[in-house]
Amino acid sequence: MSKSYKLPEKKKVDLKDIDPKDTGRFSNKEEVVQAVKELELELQQLQEKLAASKEHAVLFVFQGMDCSGKDGVIKKVFAGLHPQGISAHSFKTPTEEEARHDFLWRAHVAVPALGQIAVFNRSYYEEVLITRIHGTVKSEEAKERFKHINHFEALLADSRVKVVKIFLHISKQFQLEKLISRIEDPKKNWKFDPSDLKERKSWKQYSEIYEELFEKCSKAAPWYVVPSDNRWYRNYAVLRIAVDALRSLDLKDPAARPELQPFLEELKKEEA
C-alpha cells in the first residue's frame, strides 16, 4: 500500500492530482482496525530489532500545511514504541543560538544514533519553504540550499540513517473547517494561532514550493504524499509506511552470545 503514495524520483508532481480524501481500498475506519493492531505490534518488534542491532537508524520527517495533523499522527503512530528508543523534535522559529549556525545545524544534532528512531515535526525543509514565503530567503538562495539538503540526506544514507519524508496532504476546505472548530470549541482554542490565517492566504504558493521540493529533493530520500482529510486513514497509511521502512532494513534477531554461558551456570548454581 505505501508504495502507491511514494513519489517518483525527480519527477514533477501536481498536488491537485492527488485526492486528499482518498482512503485506498477502504471505506470506513472499522475496516482497518485489525490491520492497525497487527502493524502496531510489528512496529514494536521491529524497533526492538533495530535497537538490538545498532546497525541502522530511522528518521521520519513530517511536513504539511497547518491543520494537516502532524502532532496527531506522530502521537497515534509512534505511541506504542519504547520511549528510550525514539525521540521527537519540533522545528519552530530558530532560537538565537540556532540562527548563528548554518541552517542544517539544528537538524543534524537531532539526527538519531544507530539503533534509534527520530521523528521531526516540520524540519530543515522549513528553511526553504516558509522562509521563501516570508521573503527572508530569496528563491536563488533557497535553490542553493536544495543542494545542501540533498548532500545532507545522502550523508545520512551513507551513515545508515534511513530518512522517510512524509507530506500530509489535506484540502483547503478541510483546513478551513479545522480552523473554525478551533475557535468554536473552547477546548481547542489553545490550538488556534491568528498567524494561521495569514499563512492560509499563501496556500497556492506553499503548494507550488512543496511541488518543487518533491521534484528537486528526492534523490537520497524519496517523498510520500499521504491523503489526510480522513484522520483514520492518514494514521493507517503512515503506520504502514513506517513498518515498510523498518522492514526494508532487513533487521535480524539479536545473535546468541555463547560467552554468556558461564554466567548462566553461575546463576543456576545460586538458584539451586
Rank of each mutant, 00 (worst) to 15 (best):
M1K: 00
S2T: 05
K3T: 12
Y5D: 04
L7E: 10
L7S: 08
K10P: 03
K10H: 14
L15C: 08
L15E: 12
K16A: 14
D17I: 00
K21V: 00
K21C: 04
R25M: 10
V32A: 07
Q34L: 02
Q34T: 09
Q34Y: 07
K37C: 03
L43G: 10
Q45W: 06
Q47D: 13
K49Y: 00
A52G: 05
S53K: 06
K54V: 02
A57F: 12
F60E: 06
V61P: 03
V61E: 03
C67W: 03
D71L: 05
I74Q: 10
K75H: 03
F78E: 04
H82I: 02
H89I: 00
S90F: 01
S90Y: 01
F91T: 05
T93W: 10
T93E: 14
E96G: 01
E97K: 10
R100M: 08
L104P: 06
H108G: 00
V111Y: 11
A118D: 10
F120H: 02
N121Q: 11
N121F: 07
N121R: 05
Y124Q: 13
L129R: 07
H134P: 00
G135R: 07
E141D: 15
A142V: 07
A142D: 11
K147V: 14
L155F: 14
D158T: 09
V161E: 03
K162D: 12
K162N: 08
V163H: 11
V164K: 01
I170F: 13
S171N: 07
Q173V: 13
L176W: 13
L176N: 14
L179V: 03
L179P: 06
L179H: 05
P186N: 11
K188E: 13
N189D: 04
K201H: 06
E212G: 01
L213T: 06
C217P: 11
S218L: 02
S218F: 07
S218H: 09
P222T: 12
P227Y: 12
S228W: 14
D229Q: 12
R231I: 11
R231Q: 15
R234K: 02
N235M: 01
Y236V: 06
A237K: 09
A237M: 03
A242N: 01
A256G: 03
R257T: 10
P258T: 03
P258K: 10
L260C: 00
P262V: 04
L264Y: 12
E265R: 10
L267I: 08
K269L: 06
A272E: 15
